[in-house]
Simulated assay, not measured.
Amino acid sequence: MKKRFLLATMALVLSLSIMGCSKKEATPAPADGASGAWKFERPIEIVIPFGPGSGTDTTIRAWAPLMEKELGTTININNVAGAGGVQGAEFFVNQPADGYTFAMYTPSHVIAAVDGTASFDILNDTMPVVRLVQDSNIVLAGKHVPYNNLEELIAYAKANPDKKPTLGMMSINGIDGAAAKQLFDAAGIEVQFIPYASGAEANAAIMGGHTDMVLTSPFDGNAYLESGDMKAIVLLAEERATNLPDVQCTGELGYEAYIGPWRGIVAAKGTPQEAIDALEAAAVKVNEMKEWTDWKETVGLNDRPGFATQEEFKTIWMEYYETMKALRGK
Rank of each mutant, 00 (worst) to 15 (best):
A237Y: 01
F50R: 09
V93M: 14
F120A: 06
A113W: 02
E190K: 14
P30T: 03
D185A: 09
G208H: 05
T73H: 02
V130I: 12
G99K: 05
W63F: 14
V129L: 05
G209Q: 06
L279D: 03
K285T: 04
A97K: 15
M324R: 01
V93A: 08
G72M: 06
P245G: 05
G306Q: 03
V247K: 03
G20E: 10
D135A: 13
I172S: 04
Q310H: 15
F102R: 07
A155Y: 04
P245M: 06
G254S: 03
R42G: 09
Q87N: 11
E312L: 08
I122C: 02
K24G: 14
M127Q: 15
A34W: 08
G300K: 05
T9V: 15
A178R: 08
S217N: 11
M318N: 14
S17W: 07
E226T: 14
F50K: 08
A112S: 12
N203G: 10
M127E: 15
G264W: 01
N287F: 02
S171H: 13
T9H: 06
S198P: 01
A112Q: 00
F92H: 01
I172D: 05
A205F: 00
L236F: 04
E238F: 04
Y255D: 02
A241Q: 14
Y100W: 03
N222Y: 09
G264Y: 06
M289A: 11
G20W: 08
T74V: 11
T166C: 02
N203E: 15
Y224R: 10
V266G: 03
M67W: 07
D135W: 00
G221A: 03
I265G: 02
R328L: 13
I46T: 00
E311C: 03
I18Q: 10
